[in-house]
C-alpha cells in the first residue's frame, strides 16, 4: 500500500511505498503502476515507477494535486490483481573484449573471475524498474558478496549492449552512453528497439531475467 502521497512540484504526485528496497515493496509499486495505467485517468501524463516510489505527473490544465490524490487513494487496486510478468533470457558474451571491468571486479570483490561469472549466470534477476536512459532495466538482487561501487571515474562512452553491475543491481546499456557501472559482458540483443511502434522495450518492471552465456561467434552472428 501507499504509505504517503506528497506533491512533487505542482504537477506531480509523489507516492511513497516505504523505505525498504525489496521485491515486496516493488511489487506494490508495480501493481499500482499497472492498475493506474489501465484506468486511463483524465489528466495523467506519465507514471514513473521505481524501487519504492511511484511518481505520477499530470497536466495542470486538466486536473490538480488534490483531485488526483483523492482518485488514487480511492482506487481499488485489488480488483486488478493479475500482474502479467514475463520470463526473459538474455544472451551475453563475456569475452575479454566485452568484459571490460572483470579485473576490477576480481580485485574489489576478492573473488576469482570463474566464480564471479558462475554467481552471475546462476542468478535469477528481477526487474525493479526501467529508465534513466530509454529502456535500461535495473535488475536485482546480486548476492551480498557480489556488490561493488560504481567506477570512480565513469566512462565517457559505455558500448551499447554492455551489462553492468553496481551494488545490488545489474543493468543493460540500451544505447551507447556515459556511465559508471562495472561492465561484465555484452548482449547483442536489442533490449530497446525504438523502431517498434509499441512495446519498444523488451524488459518491463516485474519481469524475471536470466543471462545465458554465448560465444564470441554467436555474439557476432546474432543479428545475421
Amino acid at each position: 500500500m501507499i504509505k504517503n502521497i506528497l506533491n512533487l512540484g505542482d504537477a506531480a504526485l509523489y507516492c511513497d511505498f516505504g523505505k525498504e528496497v525489496n521485491k515486496e515493496t516493488n511489487n506494490q509499486v508495480i501493481r499500482y503502476f499497472k492498475s493506474i495505467r489501465k484506468e486511463n485517468i483524465e489528466g495523467i501524463d506519465n507514471l514513473a515507477p521505481s524501487y519504492n516510489k511511484l511518481i505520477i505527473s499530470f497536466n495542470l490544465r486538466k486536473t490538480n494535486f488534490k483531485k488526483l490524490k483523492s482518485i488514487i487513494e480511492n482506487l481499488d487496486i485489488k480488483k486488478n490483481d493479475h500482474l502479467e510478468n514475463k520470463k526473459i533470457e538474455i544472451p551475453i558474451c563475456i569475452d575479454e573484449q566485452f568484459s571490460l571491468d572483470i579485473k576490477r571486479l576480481e580485485e574489489k570483490l576478492n573473488i576469482n573471475r570463474d566464480k564471479i561469472y558462475e554467481n552471475f549466470f546462476n542468478k535469477i534477476f528481477f526487474c525493479y524498474m526501467t529508465g534513466f536512459i530509454a529502456g535500461m532495466p535495473f535488475l536485482g538482487d546480486l548476492d551480498e558478496d557480489m556488490r561493488v561501487e560504481r567506477l570512480e571515474t565513469p566512462r565517457v562512452k559505455v558500448p551499447k549492449g554492455s551489462v553492468g553491475l553496481t551494488e545490488q543491481f545489474a543493468n543493460i546499456y540500451t544505447f551507447e552512453s556515459p556511465g559508471g557501472w562495472n561492465i561484465i559482458g555484452n548482449t547483442p540483443l536489442d533490449v530497446f528497439d525504438s523502431s517498434k511502434k509499441i512495446e519498444p522495450n523488451l524488459i518491463n518492471p516485474g519481469d524475471t531475467i536470466i543471462f545465458k552465456k554465448i560465444t564470441k561467434n554467436q555474439h557476432s552472428n546474432f543479428n545475421d
Binding site: 495505467r37 501524463d45 507514471l47 515507477p49 526501467t130 529508465g131 530497446f192 518491463n204
Partner: peptide, 11 residues
C-alpha cells in the same frame, strides 16, 4: 511524448 517515463523515455 506522454506515457513513456516508465521505460525511460522523457517528455
Amino acid at each position: 511524448r506522454k506515457n513513456l517515463y516508465h521505460i525511460g523515455v522523457p517528455f
